[in-house]
Amino acid sequence: MWLNEYEQQLRRDLQGVASDLRWSAVELLRIAEQLRQAGNDVDAEATLRLCALFQGDEERLAGYAEEVKAKSITRTKVH
């Protein structure tokens, strides 16, 4: 089933934000490791919690993108 222009854009937007969150989580993991090595365990743990939050959001947005692809979620032109 083909997606219309607006649905395609919605799917691309969702995938793009999910990708940004994935990249951010990877960077946060790197920062958390640096904080831990510097002896700053409190901030390292806070950073890991943010990382987990981003990973959950990334998975949810990727799921929404798949729902758009399956036409479970649609977007139409707003006048």
Rank of each mutant, 00 (worst) to 15 (best):
V17W: 08
G16M: 06
S19W: 07
S72D: 15
T47E: 01
Q15F: 00
W2C: 02
K69H: 11
G63H: 12
E7M: 14
Q55G: 08
A44Q: 00
A52M: 04
L10H: 03
R12W: 10
M1S: 10
L29D: 01
E5W: 12
L3N: 07
E33L: 09
G39Q: 00
L14R: 05
R22G: 03
A70E: 15
L29M: 04
Q55Y: 04
G56S: 11
S24Y: 05
G39C: 03
L29Q: 05
V26I: 07
L61R: 15
L53V: 03
A52P: 02
Q8M: 12
L50Q: 15
L10V: 09
S24W: 04
A46N: 07
E5K: 14
Y6T: 11
A25C: 07
A46M: 10
R36M: 07
D57V: 08
A44E: 00
Q8Y: 04
D43M: 05
Q34L: 05
R22D: 15
D20T: 14
A18E: 02
A32N: 00
R36K: 09
Q8L: 11
T47C: 11
A25P: 02
L48F: 05
D41G: 04
C51A: 12
K69R: 13
R22K: 10
E45Y: 11
A32H: 00
V17H: 14
L35N: 01
S24I: 02
A52Q: 12
V68F: 05
L61C: 06
L29N: 09
S24C: 07
A18G: 05
A52W: 04
D43K: 06
G16L: 08
E7W: 09
G56I: 03
F54E: 05
D57N: 13
N40G: 02
L3P: 06
Q8D: 12
R60Y: 10
G63V: 09
L61P: 09
E66Y: 11
T47W: 02
E7P: 02
Q55E: 15
G39E: 00
A46W: 07
R11W: 01
L28T: 00
I31N: 02
A70S: 11
I73A: 10
D20F: 10
T76W: 07
E45P: 02
A25D: 00
R49W: 13
A52Y: 05
V17I: 13
Y6H: 12
A70W: 09
L14A: 03
Q9N: 04
A62S: 14
W2M: 06
N40T: 04
V68T: 12
C51D: 08
V26M: 01
A62G: 11
T74I: 13
C51I: 04
E67R: 15
C51T: 08
D57H: 15
M1H: 08
R49L: 14
Q34Y: 02
L21K: 00
L29G: 08
E45M: 07
C51Y: 06
L14Y: 02
D43F: 04
K77P: 02
A46T: 01
W2Y: 10
G63K: 15
K71I: 02
Q37R: 08
A38Y: 01
E59W: 13
D43G: 03
R36W: 03
R60T: 13
K71N: 09
R30D: 14
A18P: 01
L53P: 01
E45I: 06
L61F: 14
E67Y: 09
